[in-house]
Design a protein around this nucleic acid. Structure first.
Length: 922
RNA sequence: GGAAGCAUAGCUCAGCUGGGAUGAGCGCUCGCCUGACUAGCGGGAGGCCAAGGGUUCGAGCCCCUUUGCUUCCACCA
């Protein structure tokens, strides 16, 4: 079946059609196969509430590039997909929609609420998946998982029970971060500190007299940013060596409003330099105060309800919101004359990263993961390179967190999530942690239990993702074969939430790292460098971009012009450029196929290839080597940039143009036909390999062209899809150094000619021609000497080619129509012939360059060469350099020296001639 | 208070372990509808690589200092 490409590139329809085909053919499906090496990536599971945003697009593009690359290289490539239940994010969303209907979560009840949640999951969980497909993600969808599916539930329970048994999970009353809006505890990682303008209230408490009455003259003054917490004060602290207060040690002060007598304690935690050197201690509402309280056995008085209103411990302020209470308390203190002053003060306030509410530090009973032991292998792994972070500098951030690790609060007062497998005896209160509710209480024999109402932090299950998705806790074949995974691709913003937790979980549960490399990317920002956010309304919807420009264009845009781990800005202009590139590829392919139509293209002997053919093949060969190398070291942007340059610049702008005359030839003679065949074969060969190199980045367009190409021009490679085609390999035989150099000289010459022509503003006339010498060496010498700079190339971009014999007589049968025309037009007699096998330039002798200009140019060149020679000579005559530089390098430099010396001679000679007024014409 | 990153063409950014800045895209400018492509072709202008020191035969790249911007971490009331 021979198909034709549409006249213009239009990604619409095409992309969906091809993706459908890939799914049907099961190209993305991976099975255990011990004859092949696995390559595994697990997807960072997107939230079921999520809509595809630019961050996802970037993240998944990178993964897809890697997995497609490895698949083509012959690895058994598995990209394991799935979604995350995202407990708090989802629960908040559902509550919002319920609110719109006037329904309250607690009125509905847990069971009904969960029903709604599952319905939500069913409705929206698939949305993000279909969006990932739009992007071209080659995930093995047959293996799609969900963090709350049966297998993951089992994994979570298993881990919880196991770690509890080991003492790594415990329940305890500790200082936690409480979100009064979401009504749940949150972990340290979820607290975001924000600089906020506030006040520093200077307050004084009366010192107690010996007789038990508060003094009216002696006070202890201190400053606080949160006066309302005074309701829970249980001490006042000073530094033990602070002489200003040494006489008060052991005494007490009267807590106003509450009329409670509290002690003055000493603690080195107090900074003598700050404020008055006195701190009020509220163990229940400040992490530091909590620690101080523990050291001094102070009572912990919680004065706050879960919704951040004052509770019954707050006396008359009971029921008041924390901020209202603050105002009222300041007012009352002021009336009592205990308010010294109010200062403006800017300080960091902890907020909940999801709802931005100011978190309330509270002492509560929660479940925790003890981190001290667990974190050790995770630290060691990164230190010894077992797990590699790319870019490396992120290790610092990693270690900063691990070095200061604190126990992980994992219980959440939410309903949507994995319920904690802890059961409390209704009778004696005994706690049993087990996969299932026990039949009878081991302590009192009671048969009635109540399960802990709390659920687990959503990251608890995500931490198990790399192995739970492969079947753990079962010892499946998949697990043994695909684990540990190879690369994890993610943003640096979730290094604490996820990456670290996966690493220690992998070592703890599997005894093995979860992945070998973590490839980080940055944030996608808007064109002004701002974070894309809903509130700013500056988000760019990737789906809109895909709709307008195609997924290929979006992918290319996201992957180029950016170094690993750096943030990037998103510009529409860059997407347009990517789309234009796609169009370029499309049209070049169309051109090639047009010329191949109806012809049997056969592989020529190497000798049948012309120098330009060998040149582009050699260039391609180098490209294959470079691109493969870059991709293997995760330099994705650099790799594709090289492919881009090769296709657009070398292949389209040079090779195709150089080869056109051969294609347009009549094909009357054997020589012409052979030449044409060689050109066509080269065109097709280079195109196919270039498409393959491009495929991981632009899967759709490359597949479409690849498949069409298979049906045209005779022999096909037998590969049915580029998705599963073989990645091109570098072969030493296809490296043609000589041709590369020769063609570069010709290119340089042509550029020079165009340059001159443009500067002289020569009227375009594509029929003008000049030929300068008679054989290959001669013409190359001519180019090297720069003689061609004395003429300009008429015609536009084409570098036309003819073959001529020495003395200007055309080789039999090789005169093209154009050349005949030239002769007839009498142009040839004003020209000199050049033969470059495969290339002839037409240069009108009439267009001579200004000699002064040429002298200037040469002088500049001379100066440049002088500089070069100094540099190279400096290196080669340097003992230290010669001692430690690799041989290859030295050889390279020697070569340069020879080249520059030769060039220098020529330039000097030429310059001398010009200055003497010789050689104005060729 | 710690730590990291950035500072290269008008704009946004690449430049891998130190060895010629023919850097990329966009923009600007001049000329072209050349038988694939105006989503195109050809030419051009535009950079003392933030400042100052140092190491080196040689520094955009390594070291130190300074300035400006960004980000992360941290319990200073």
């Amino acid at each position: 079946m021979s198909r034709e490409l549409a006249k213009t590139y239009d990604p619409k329809g095409l992309e969906d059609r091809l993706y459908q085909k890939w799914l049907e053919k099961k190209y993305f499906h991976a099975e255990v196969d011990h004859s092949r090496t696995p390559f595994t990536i697990v997807i960072p599971p997107p939230n079921i509430t999520g809509q595809l945003h630019m961050g996802h697009a970037l993240d998944n593009t990178m993964q897809d590039i890697l997995i497609r690359f490895k698949r083509m290289q012959g690895y058994n490539a598995l990209w394991q997909p799935g979604t995350d239940h995202a407990s708090i994010a989802t629960e908040v969303k559902i509550i919002e929609t319920m609110k719109a209907e006037g329904i309250d979560k607690h009125d509905l009840g847990r069971e009904k609420f969960l029903e709604r949640a599952w319905a939500w999951k069913k409705e929206y969980g698939g949305r993000i998946v279909s969006q990932l497909k739009k992007l071209g993600s080659s995930c093995d969808w047959d293996r799609e998982r969900f963090t709350m599916d049966e297998g993951c539930n089992r994994a979570v329970t298993e881990v919880f029970v196991k770690m509890h048994k080991k003492g790594y999970i415990y329940k305890g009353a500790r200082m936690i971060n409480w979100c009064p809006v979401c009504n749940t505890s949150i972990s340290d990682a979820e607290v975001e500190y924000q600089e906020q303008a506030g006040h520093l209230w200077h307050i004084k408490y009366p010192v107690m007299n010996e007789d038990g009455t508060p003094s009216t003259t002696e006070f202890l003054t201190f400053a606080t940013t949160r006066p309302e917490t005074m309701l829970g004060d249980t001490a006042v602290a000073v530094h033990p060596e602070d002489e200003r207060y040494s006489h008060l040690i052991g005494k007490s002060v009267m807590l106003p409003i509450m009329n409670r007598v509290i002690p003055v304690v000493t603690d080195t935690y107090v900074d003598r330099e700050f404020g008055t050197g006195v701190v009020k201690i509220t163990p229940a509402h400040d992490p530091n105060d909590f620690e101080v309280g523990k050291r001094h056995n102070l009572p912990v008085i919680n004065v706050m309800n879960d919704d951040a209103t004052v509770n019954e411990n707050g006396g008359k302020y009971c029921g008041m919101d924390r901020y209202a209470a603050r105002k009222a308390i300041v007012e009352e203190l002021s009336q009592q004359g205990l308010l010294v002053k109010i200062e403006d003060y800017s300080h960091n306030v902890g907020t909940h990263d999801r709802c931005k509410t100011t978190v309330e530090p509270l002492v509560k009973e929660q479940w925790f993961v003890k981190m001290e032991e667990l974190i050790k292998p995770a630290v060691e792994a990164v230190k010894n390179g077992d797990v590699e972070l790319v870019p490396k500098r992120l290790e610092k951030i990693y270690f900063n967190w691990t070095d200061n690790i604190r126990d992980w609060c994992i219980s959440r007062q939410l309903w949507w999530g994995h319920r904690i497998p802890a059961y409390y005896c209704d009778q004696c209160g005994e706690t049993v942690v087990a996969a299932q509710a026990p039949a009878v209480c081991p302590k009192c024999g009671c048969a009635h239990f109540t399960q802990d109402p709390d659920t687990l932090d959503t990251w608890f299950s995500s931490a198990l993702w790399p192995f739970e998705t492969l079947g753990w806790p079962e010892q499946t074949e998949d697990l043994q074969y695909f684990y540990p995974t190879d690369v994890l691709v993610t943003g640096y913003d979730i290094i604490f939430f996820w990456v670290i937790r996966m690493i220690f979980s992998g070592y703890e549960q599997m005894g093995e790292k979860p992945f070998k490399t973590v490839l980080f990317h940055g944030l996608v920002r808007d064109s002004q460098g701002r974070k894309m956010s809903k509130s700013l309304g500056n988000g760019i919807d990737p789906l809109e971009i895909i709709d307008k420009y195609g997924a290929d264009a979006l992918r290319l845009t996201l992957i180029t012009g950016n170094a690993p781990g750096n943030d990037m800005r998103f510009y529409y202009e860059r997407v347009e450029n990517s789309r234009n590139f796609a169009n370029k590829v499309w049209n070049a392919s169309r051109f090639i196929m047009m010329n191949m139509e109806g012809k049997e293209v056969t592989e020529p002997e190497v000798s049948g290839l012309q120098p330009v053919d060998r040149w582009i093949l050699s260039k391609l060969n180098t490209l294959i080597k470079d691109v493969t190398g870059n991709m293997e070291s995760f330099e994705l942007g650099i790799a594709v940039q090289k492919v881009y340059d090769f296709i657009w610049d070398e292949f389209c702008d040079w090779y195709i143009e150089m080869v056109k005359p051969r294609l347009y030839g009549t094909g009357e003679t054997e020589i012409d036909r052979a030449s044409q065949n060689a050109a066509l074969w080269t065109l097709r060969t280079v195109l196919i390999d270039a498409l393959k190199l491009l495929h991981p980045y632009m899967p759709f367009i490359t597949e479409e062209i690849f498949c069409t190409l298979q049906s045209i021009g005779g022999e096909s490679s037998g590969e049915e899809s580029i998705v599963i085609s073989r990645w091109p390999e570098y072969t030493a035989e296809r490296s043609y150094g000589k041709e590369e150099k020769d063609i570069e000289i010709i290119k340089e010459a042509v550029r020079g000619i165009r340059n001159v022509r443009s500067e002289m503003n020569v009227a375009p006339s594509k029929k003008t021609a000049v030929v300068v010498a008679s054989d290959r060496e001669d013409i190359l010498a001519t180019f090297r000497e720069g003689k061609l700079f004395f003429a300009s190339l008429a015609g536009a971009n084409q570098v036309d080619m003819l073959c001529r014999k020495e003395g200007g007589a055309a080789r039999e049968g090789s005169l093209s129509g154009e050349e005949k025309e030239l002769q007839e037009a009498g142009i040839a007699k004003d020209s000199v012939s050049v033969v470059i096998p495969g290339a002839t330039l037409y240069i009108p002798l009439a267009d001579l360059v200004d000699i002064e200009q040429e002298i200037q140019r040469l002088e500049k060149e001379q100066k440049r060469l002088e500089g070069e020679l100094t540099r190279v000579n400096g290196m080669l005559s340097n003992e230290r350099f010669m001692a430690k530089a690799p041989e290859e390098k030295v050889a390279q430099e020697r070569e340069k020296l020879a080249k520059y010396t030769q060039m220098m001679e020529q330039v000097s000679q030429r310059l001398g001639q010009l200055k003497e007024g010789r050689l104005e014409t060729v």
